[in-house]
Nucleic acid binder design. Structure first.
Lengths: 120, 120
DNA sequence: CAATCATTTTAGTTTTAACTAAAGTGATGA
DNA sequence: TCATCACTTTAGTTAAAACTAAAATGATTG
């Protein structure tokens, strides 16, 4: 998967978007990202970090017992600009927040909403 | 899910991107989209169309026994601009084509590549 | 060296996206 | 009205994403 296609896949996930936002401008230790992410376990966060790193979207630097992550912005191409536009847009932020809260029950969403039996 | 968030989810999928590209500028009957989509069954295409329609990303008009789909471009916001940039970019097109072919075996990819046992 | 801290990895569960095959629907035309 | 066309829907399968809990790793500190 090319890095830019990986970027498209990554930004489809609210959790991944959140991680990328946190690590977009500065390096952040995994623990700090975890603390900022709400009710996820550390393990889950670590798995997201690994996936993003494997996809070439995060870079990693070890300092003592900390591991510092930062977005590899150059890997995102035009997708990076989209993210920045989203994050700068107050309306968008509100909507995201609403959706995050709304889904604080049940596991996590993967993709689009899909057909349910009697939805027609 | 807001339409724009749905748009993010939609463009993560190569099939959905392809459908959106086909229905971006003009209405297209489902059958034409199917024919343009390669080796998928009609049923599978119909399911994608339904998902995109449910998400507010496609509009639908019935004419005789045909069903004409067209992208609701206004629902995409900045994501629409990204799509247009991608489709105008010859390099992107090549990469996409390569990835489509590459995966003409096995079912379909969902997201990011993820940890495999001995990948470290 | 032992304890601790920061983090990663593994194993196992649940949910669901994407698909196929086949049955179902509704408009059209002979 | 019966067959056909253009689709949609259903049922069932497969593969994988997201998560939790717990074990493992590796650096640091006493």
């Amino acid at each position: 998967m090319g890095a830019e296609t990986a970027a498209l896949a990554a930004i489809a996930s609210p959790r991944r978007r959140e991680i990328l936002r946190l690590a977009w401008q500065q390096e952040r230790p995994a623990g700090e990202i975890h603390r900022a992410m709400g009710d996820l376990t550390f393990g889950a966060v670590s798995q997201h970090l690994r996936a993003l790193h494997d996809a070439g979207l995060l870079e990693l630097r070890a300092v003592g017992r900390h591991r510092l992550y930062r977005a590899r912005r150059e890997a995102f191409g035009p997708v990076g600009e989209l993210l920045e536009r989203m994050w700068d847009d107050a309306l968008w932020r509100l909507k995201q927040q609403a959706e995050l809260l709304e889904r604080r029950r049940g596991p996590q969403p993967r993709r689009l909403a899909r057909r349910r039996k009697g939805t027609t």
